[in-house]
Design a protein around this nucleic acid. Structure first.
Length: 135
DNA sequence: GCCAACGTTGGC
DNA sequence: GCCAACGTTGGC
């Protein structure tokens, strides 16, 4: 079981839209590092959903329901996509400020490499986010 | 709206 | 293979 975080600008694709659609094809990733992370994802892995730019907070938890396959939005074989399904909305979203100020979260890739759109999260970080979201 | 950080491209 | 130029991302 691995843990991940994906980012999306809510103006482009929001958590709300994701909930309405029940599942989505996480296509359009055109960055090698992000692609490599997609390739490592396994069915059932947990994925934190982060709103970048607007909101700047982790809003929900999703899971991988289909492992990596050719991204249908391009003919270039270098690119992959996975299918994701929303699991639940966090009772309280975890803001970027909270992540920065929390000693268990301030080493997250989100802070170190803020531009990476698909990134790994440790089990400890994932559980900490869930813990904080319940308060 | 600005700009720092980062990835990619292309000339050499 | 280096690196300057450029484009994009995302926080502020």
């Amino acid at each position: 079981m691995n843990y991940w975080l994906v980012k999306s600008e809510p103006d482009a694709y929001s958590w709300k839209k994701f909930l309405e659609e029940k599942q989505t094809v996480w296509s359009g990733i055109r960055n090698f590092q992000a692609r490599n992370n997609l390739r490592t994802m396994k069915t059932g892995d947990n994925v934190l959903f982060y709103h970048s730019n607007v909101g700047k907070e982790i809003v929900g938890v999703a899971k991988v329901i289909q492992e990596a396959y050719q991204d249908p939005t391009t003919k270039e074989t270098a690119w992959l996509t996975v299918d994701l399904q929303p699991i639940r909305t966090l009772k309280k979203a975890i803001t970027l400020d909270e992540i920065k100020s929390d000693s268990k979260l301030n080493e997250m890739v989100l802070l170190k490499n803020s531009r990476l759109s698909v990134q790994p999260v440790t089990k400890e970080e994932f559980e900490r986010v869930i813990e904080l979201s319940k308060k």
